[in-house]
Amino acid sequence: MNITVLAVGTKMPRWVDEAVADYAKRFGREIQFQLKEIKPEKRGSGVNAEQGMAAEEARIIAAIPPKNFLVVLDEHGKAPTSMALADCLNEWQRNGDHVCFVIGGADGMTAALKARANMMMRLSSLTLPHGMVRVLLTEQLYRAQSILHHHPYHRE
């Protein structure tokens, strides 16, 4: 199974890259995890938030691997528990799905991009920095896999 995370933004702090890499290597051979950074659109000089999101949308759509189950992270999405995310991961694996998660830019994502999603999900009701979202998403996906394998990483 392939899991791709598309994240708008570049030049994250070193601790973000290290944490994502640490959890990504824990997946082993069963899951091929990849994080792709999407260049954010510069704001100002006549580029407003709506225009910026539209430009980012084009870059995101171009980066979505073909035939992937698309999950958009959004504050209005469902907030699954770790066990529910494990159930989703199990279903995706059973169906032979590859999954692509999208983390939008500072202004969010267009309604059109959200409408393309097979699922909208949120990690928290809190506003989180983009780097933290990358780390939390990767950790929760690893946790979901550990739940499916009855690994002691997760405790109920």
Rank of each mutant, 00 (worst) to 15 (best):
M1Y: 07
I3T: 08
I3R: 06
V5Q: 02
A7L: 07
V8A: 09
G9D: 06
G9S: 06
T10D: 04
T10F: 01
T10G: 01
M12E: 08
P13T: 01
P13I: 00
V16G: 05
V16N: 05
D17Q: 10
D17I: 03
E18G: 05
V20P: 12
A21D: 11
Y23R: 04
Y23Q: 04
R26L: 08
F27K: 01
I31D: 01
I31H: 00
Q32M: 06
F33A: 02
F33G: 07
F33L: 06
Q34T: 12
L35I: 05
K36E: 12
K36A: 04
K39W: 03
K39R: 15
P40L: 02
K42C: 01
A54K: 15
A54H: 08
A58P: 06
R59E: 10
R59T: 07
I60H: 10
I61Q: 14
A62S: 13
A62Y: 07
A62M: 09
A63T: 07
K67V: 03
F69C: 07
V72S: 06
E75S: 13
E75L: 15
E75P: 14
H76G: 14
G77M: 09
K78S: 12
A79I: 04
P80R: 00
P80S: 00
S82K: 04
A84N: 05
L85T: 01
L85A: 01
D87M: 00
D87Y: 00
L89C: 10
W92M: 02
W92Y: 04
W92G: 00
R94V: 03
H98G: 05
H98V: 00
V99A: 04
F101W: 11
V102I: 15
I103E: 10
I103P: 14
G105P: 14
A106R: 05
A112Y: 09
A112G: 07
L113T: 02
A115W: 05
A115N: 12
R116T: 01
A117I: 10
A117G: 13
A117M: 13
N118R: 06
M120I: 12
L126Q: 11
L128F: 13
M132V: 14
R134C: 08
V135H: 03
L136H: 07
L137G: 04
E139N: 05
Q140T: 02
L141T: 03
L141R: 07
L141M: 13
Y142M: 03
R143W: 09
A144L: 05
A144M: 08
Q145F: 07
S146R: 12
Y153G: 01
H154C: 02
H154E: 03
